[in-house]
Each structure stands twice: as structure tokens, then as C-alpha cells.
Amino acid sequence: MTKQYLAAIKNRRSQYALGKDLPLAEQEVTELIKEAIRQSPSAFNSQSSRAVILHGAQHEKFWEIVKNELQKIVPAENFAPTEEKVNSFAAGAGTVLFYEDQDVVKGLQENFALYADNFPIWSEHSTGIAQFAVWTALAEANIGASLQHYNPLPDAAVAAEWKVPASWKLRAQMPFGSHQGEFSEKEFMADEDRFIVQ
């Protein structure tokens, strides 16, 4: 079991060459994402992680919003590489928008005042775990993905478009789709610089 789990983690890589030909039906992908988030641990079992799961045209609309927001801050003469990058995400089949519910965080701060300063930090832990769980689950299903952080640029437009509750804070975006390219070799820093074992 341990070897299988580590193999799954190793299989999770950033895929930037995405296509729309998924090996699973749309509903199966949705359920996979939901279950991965459901099973992700959180401090005090707060279950603060939220997600907006976009498929097809809705997914493409999200990346159009991102592109429109980027055009406001990137000079026109330099926009071509940015547009190319955003288009590569839109070329996929879907996107998961990861949120953390700030009402949950505030409630925990009020109910457990002793740990109040830690709950925002633990919320960030929760979303990171949820993102990793979804990413690994998608990789296991032979679906490519990468993790992006265009927030807070599109936050307001996205909230209006998909009626996202005001208490949800956007933390990351994960475009996903079929594998349309190979992975580059992954390099690791030296263990002696990263680990202390006593």
C-alpha cells in the first residue's frame, strides 16, 4: 500500500499541455474532485475548503475573465506571452477553483480564542492539503493538471459570474485536461540541505 501511495504522489506532476479529451465522464471527474476534498483533513475538522468546479464553456469563461483582468495590468506590447500561457490553461477540459470559507475561520477564532491567530494559517494548510489531494486523484485517473495563483485579480468578476458567497476567499486555480505533452525531468535538491534526521 505504501509503495502504491508513493507511486501516486510521484505520478502527480505539473502538466501545462492540456487537451479536452478526458478518460472519465464529466460527472465522474466532478465526483472525484468532490470526494478528494471531502476526505482532506482540516484543523478541528473545520471543513473550511470550498470549490467551484468548472467544465467546458464555463471553464473557458473563467480563463477569459483572467485574461481580461491581466490585460488591465500587462502592457499591450508584452501581452502575447501572457495570453499564450492563459490560453494553454483554457485548452484543457475544466478548472477547479479552490476557496477557503472565512466565516468558518472567524467562527473558530471566536469559539477557540486561545488559537485565534493560528486559524488563518491552519486554513491555508487545509486548502493546500485539498489541492494536493485533488491533484493526486486527477493524476491517478490519468488527467493532467497544474496549480495556478491568479487571485486576487479575477476574484470579484468570478464571484459575480458564479454567485460565489462573499465569505469564500479564492486561494488557487487548477486547470485540468488530457495529457498533450511529456513531463520534463524533475530535479531534487540535496537531502542534506533539506532534512535533519537524528
Results as ranks from 00 to 15, higher is better:
Leu108Trp: 01
Ala130Gly: 06
Ser146Val: 12
His149Tyr: 12
Ala157Arg: 13
Ala116Gln: 11
Trp122Tyr: 09
Trp122Ala: 09
Ser126Tyr: 00
Leu97Ile: 09
Phe195Pro: 10
Tyr99Ala: 03
Ala130Lys: 00
Gly177Ser: 12
Leu114Ile: 10
His125Ser: 01
Leu153Asn: 10
Met189Asn: 14
Ala139Cys: 07
Asn142Thr: 08
Glu124His: 06
Gln109Met: 15
Asn142Leu: 04
Ser123Lys: 01
Ser167Thr: 15
Ala159Gly: 13
Pro152Gln: 04
Tyr150Glu: 06
Val105Thr: 15
Val158Trp: 05
Ala133Thr: 06
Arg171Met: 15
Leu147Met: 12
Ala130Asp: 00
Tyr115Trp: 07
Tyr115Asp: 11
Ala137Phe: 04
Ala93Trp: 02
Leu97Thr: 02
Pro154Thr: 05
Thr127Glu: 06
Asp103Gln: 07
Gln102Asp: 11
Ile129Arg: 00
Gly181Cys: 12
Val105Phe: 00
Asp101Thr: 06
Gly181Leu: 11
Arg171Leu: 15
Ser123Phe: 00
Gly177Asn: 11
Glu100Asp: 06
Ile121Pro: 00
Gln131Ser: 11
Asp101Phe: 04
Val96Arg: 03
Glu100Trp: 00
Phe195Ile: 15
Thr95Gln: 05
Ile121Met: 10
Ala133Leu: 05
Trp135Phe: 10
Ala133Arg: 04
Val197Pro: 02
Asn118Gln: 11
Ile121Leu: 13
His149Asn: 09
Gly107His: 03
Val104Ile: 14
Phe112Lys: 09
Gln173Ile: 06
Asn118Leu: 08
Ser146Trp: 02
Pro154Leu: 03
Ala137Trp: 00
Arg171Glu: 14
Gly107Pro: 06
Glu185Pro: 06
Tyr99Asp: 04
Ala156Leu: 12
Val164Gln: 11
Leu108Gln: 04
Ala172Cys: 13
Leu108Ser: 04
Ala113Met: 05
Ser123Asp: 02
Ala113Cys: 00
Ser184Lys: 15
Ser184Asn: 14
Arg194Gly: 09
Phe98Lys: 03
Val134Ala: 05
Gly92Lys: 01
Tyr115Lys: 09
Glu182Ser: 14
Phe176Leu: 12
Leu153His: 08
Arg171Pro: 10
Gln198His: 13
Val105Gln: 03
Lys186Asn: 13
Pro154Phe: 02
Phe112Ala: 08
Ser184Val: 10
Lys186Cys: 09
Trp162Gln: 14
Ala145Leu: 03
Gln173Cys: 07
Thr127Asn: 08
Trp122Met: 12
Met189Glu: 15
Glu124Asp: 11
Leu97Gly: 01
His179Ile: 15
Phe183Tyr: 15
Phe112Asp: 08
Asp117Lys: 11
